[in-house]
């Protein structure tokens, strides 16, 4: 490593030590902001995942007209399979339906009525791009047109609620996440401005004696990166701690990946780098 870089690192670290209070405040604010960021990200991803899983389980129930032969039913199954947006079709015969009834309600309907009253049906699952109120509505209409179909039942209202809720959560969270990103960049750049103001004279002298702007910038950018890394690191540790604690109490309730957990650290470094770069560049422009 060249002497220039060693000098920059030394000056950067010394700068942080000289302004201990400002450094502590910046690092803790970054840590808090990025912990909130990480938590929001985790919540957003889990809400999105939950919505996806619920929709995945949501199927159409297509009841067939009574008197349809098994061959007719198989033809109808092929016709439904051929509709764009249908992922799978499962045939549930009258006997299967009765069996399910017995299993679910733990009682035998044939003890009450003489004949099996349950119609044969298809359970139709949808392709992911059709798992919305609009897509499902279109499919329902197409299936209803087919001959032999008596009734199509699907939870259209639930699709709408899921779509709307998912959209609201995403929009609100995205706005909050963007707000936090800007807040961290502004925070780092403003803290750096204070540091720069207190070092104004030495920066002016460096400029005077022929230090390049890159050389002058470097210690301040290193300061920013160190602050961001420490703040982001603390946020990552806090987030991981919270996830572990939550998962131990509610196993399998939370889905997370290490990429998400490490996001505050990575973001802390990137945003602080940007913030410090913007701050020092502005000052040097004015020299």
């Amino acid at each position: 490593m060249s002497l220039n870089y060693l000098y920059s690192i030394r000056e950067g670290i010394l700068g942080l030590r000289r302004a201990r209070m400002a450094t502590f405040l910046t690092v803790s604010t970054i840590a808090v902001s990025l912990t909130i960021f990480g938590a929001l990200l985790l919540i957003t991803l889990n809400v999105a995942d939950l919505v996806y899983r619920i929709k995945e389980r949501m199927t159409f129930e297509v009841f067939l007209e009574s008197g349809l032969t098994r061959d007719n039913a198989m033809e109808l199954q092929s016709a439904i399979k051929g509709i764009r947006g249908v992922a799978g079709v499962m045939y549930i015969s009258k006997e299967d339906a009765l069996e399910r009834y017995r299993r679910d309600l733990k009682m035998d309907p044939l003890q009450i009525v003489e004949e099996n009253p349950l119609p044969a049906s298809f359970q139709v699952s949808l392709m992911p791009e059709y798992r919305s109120a609009q897509g499902a509505g279109r499919l329902k209409a197409e299936i209803e047109k087919l001959q032999g179909v008596n009734e199509v039942i699907y939870h259209g209202g639930l699709y709408e609620i899921l779509d709307r809720t998912g959209r609201y959560v995403l929009v609100v969270d995205a706005a909050l996440l963007i707000f936090i990103v800007f807040a961290v960049v502004l925070l780092v750049s403003n803290t750096l401005k204070l540091t720069i103001l207190s070092h104004r004279r030495s920066i002016q002298i460096m400029d005077l004696v022929g230090a390049t702007h890159r050389f002058i910038r470097r210690p301040y950018i290193i300061q920013g990166i160190v602050q961001g890394a420490v703040g982001g690191g603390v946020a990552t540790i806090l987030l991981y701690g919270a996830v572990v604690l939550f998962s131990s109490r509610f196993p399998n309730a939370l889905r997370y990946s290490f990429v998400v957990i490490l996001m505050p650290l990575v973001l802390g470094i990137i945003l602080s780098f940007l913030g410090s770069r913007i701050g020092i560049k502005r000052f040097l422009k004015g020299l």
Partner: peptide, 29 residues
């Protein structure tokens, strides 16, 4: 360049003030 108000770093000693110009321009220790 020298100025009427000297433009020195008051929190550093004489040696460091002169050495500063050399550090800032990448001269080795």
């Amino acid at each position: 360049m020298v100025f009427q108000d000297f433009k020195l770093l008051e929190d550093r000693d004489v040696y460091e003030n002169v050495a500063f110009a050399l550090w800032a321009t990448g001269v080795n220790r």
